[in-house]
Amino acid sequence: MPKKTLKRLMPDPGTIKNHKYLSMLGHRLHDNNLWHLNRHSAAGAFAVGLFCAWLPIPFQMVVAAVLAMSFRVNLPLSVVLVWLTNPLTMPPMFYFAYRLGSFLLNKPHHYQHFEMSLSWLSSAMTTAAPPFLLGCLVLGLVSSATGYMVIHAMWRWSVSRRWKLRRRSR
């Protein structure tokens, strides 16, 4: 697969190095290991990116970049995968996270009538935040582990298939 396809889809390293929010990371951004694409760096990047996609915080890309640098996995792939959560996908993903968290905590779903007030917001956050955050954590861990294993397996399958084709062509 994946190497040719992923290389074609990844942004230019210069673009990431010059990104205004990522420039605060300084010289660490110039580590060559962050830009190489192999089975381990791609699988690790998928794990980091998919985990960060489930984080219900702003600036997920910065968190993904810091984690990619910490684990020395492919930085552009980690940052790009965070965009799985975008304005179109975020509501259903986070609703599913809330439902999963409610199920795991064995709490009923609270559907309150919406009001534009601070009191409504604080009461909604106290009832909905624990199941929502638990659901995000569980889904982040599960999707991260699944992404890591799937990329590892696809990469190995692709390499073994190429080796078999080479042997047949001799």
Rank of each mutant, 00 (worst) to 15 (best):
T89S: 15
V79A: 05
V79M: 10
N86S: 07
L105W: 04
H109T: 02
G101I: 04
N86V: 09
L104W: 08
N86K: 06
S78G: 10
V73E: 01
L100N: 11
V80Q: 06
V73H: 01
Y111F: 13
H110E: 04
L100K: 08
L81H: 05
T89C: 11
T85F: 05
S102G: 13
R99K: 14
T85I: 08
L105H: 04
T85E: 04
L84R: 05
L81N: 13
M69L: 11
S102Y: 00
N106M: 02
M93K: 09
T89E: 08
L81K: 07
H110A: 02
A97V: 11
M90I: 15
F96R: 01
L84T: 15
S102R: 01
K107D: 00
K107Q: 15
A97D: 11
R99V: 14
W83V: 05
L77R: 04
S102C: 15
P87D: 10
S102L: 03
G101Q: 06
V73R: 00
S70H: 14
N86D: 10
T85V: 12
A68T: 07
R99L: 15
M93T: 14
V80F: 04
P76R: 07
V79D: 02
H109Y: 02
F71N: 01
V73W: 00
L100C: 12
P108R: 04
S70C: 10
H110K: 02
P76T: 08
F103E: 02
V82L: 10
L75G: 02
L88D: 02
W83P: 02
T85Q: 08
V73D: 00
P92Y: 11
M93I: 15
F96V: 14
F71M: 13
F71K: 12
Y95F: 15
M93E: 14
V82M: 12
Y95M: 14
K107S: 04
F71R: 12
L100W: 11
S78R: 07
L81A: 03
M93F: 13
P92F: 11
R72C: 02
R72V: 09
N74P: 12
M90H: 13
F71W: 13
A68K: 04
S78D: 09
P87R: 07
V79E: 02
A97F: 06
T85M: 08
P108S: 12
G101H: 03
Y98I: 02
F94C: 10
S70L: 15
L84M: 14
R99E: 05
V79Y: 03
V80C: 00
P108F: 01
T89K: 03
M90V: 14
S78T: 12
L105D: 02
Y95C: 03
A68E: 05
F94S: 07
R99H: 12
N74M: 04
G101R: 04
G101N: 10
